[in-house]
Design a protein around this nucleic acid. Structure first.
Lengths: 150, 150
DNA sequence: CACGATTACATCGTGCACGATTTAACTATC
DNA sequence: GATAGTTAAATCGTGCACGATGTAATCGTG
């Protein structure tokens, strides 16, 4: 018998599993859409950031994505090899690497514009419901991050 | 100017990013808890399934976790090497591999019992709010999976 | 019973994700 | 202006995740 204070839980009782499996489900929906652009999902997230603000440093990207250079450096090298970005050391502070869009990388933006509507459609929700859910999940994430930092 | 039908979106407008980053945040909270048991997060999910129902086949685990044998086989071999499970081919159908808990794997269950309360605490939400959020996320996941299958 | 099709699992290659460490550049203090 | 400390990226090793493919066992049909 389980103790009163800590009964057993099944997989589907765990919110972390809902998040984990929803993340995989998103990947499965994105994969064919992004394959048409030759991007992986994390590469797409980097491009979304650069389309909004070009010339970010590796550390800026890392702060926004909650990723470290050990993940970003190889990913950015692949984006560079694909011709979408350039990685150049900042002249004023050579420790820093600025990531800038090439013309090709900038033009990819147009081809990516119809992806969000596709995702909205696949979700089967209204924008309002989706935004509300997004807000709650982001708040949960922030509290978890806050807890993990302590 | 963006076209009316498909304006640009920032990273934080994307629900997929909320899910993606919440998944990472869960991992960061789980990691130290699971490190005490010597498990990774996906390994923990497998153990949760086996604690609820011992003797599942590789395919059963895959169906519940939405993972294929290419992910599960190495993971299960690591759990076997750790002494938590045994992998034995079914005598009636030698294509199938049954995964059973060892005494050590079964005993790990007791040490894992206080993990869910820790997660609940880290989330900063009530059980009711968390379960409601979980239900919505699971419903979204199911619609995405349904869309990806088609 | 034979044999093509199907099924279950394993294998291989690529790309994240992350802890730990390293390297190079900058800053602060003396 | 030497040097200790700090910072930004890069590097390395391990473990998921997954598309593509391989292999062996089983099933279905003639």
């Amino acid at each position: 018998m389980a103790k009163d204070a800590a009964p057993d839980v099944g997989l589907n009782d765990l919110i972390c599993f809902a998040i984990y499996s929803a993340n995989h489900a998103f990947n499965r929906v994105y994969r064919p859409l992004l394959a048409a652009l030759g991007l992986t999902y994390p590469q797409y997230l980097v491009m979304v950031l650069l389309w909004a603000e070009d010339g970010l440093r590796v550390g800026d990207l890392g702060a926004r994505l909650a990723l470290e250079s050990n993940t970003l450096t190889p990913l950015l090298k692949r984006l560079e090899a694909l011709g979408h970005i350039a990685r150049i050391r900042d002249a004023a502070d050579e420790r820093q690497v600025r990531v800038t869009l090439t013309a090709q990388g900038a033009s990819l933006r147009e081809r990516a514009r119809d992806i969000p509507p596709c995702i909205l459609d696949a979700s089967g929700l209204t924008i309002e419901d989706l935004m509300q859910l997004k807000t709650r999940i982001a708040a949960l994430r922030d509290r978890l991050d806050q807890h993990a930092a302590a």
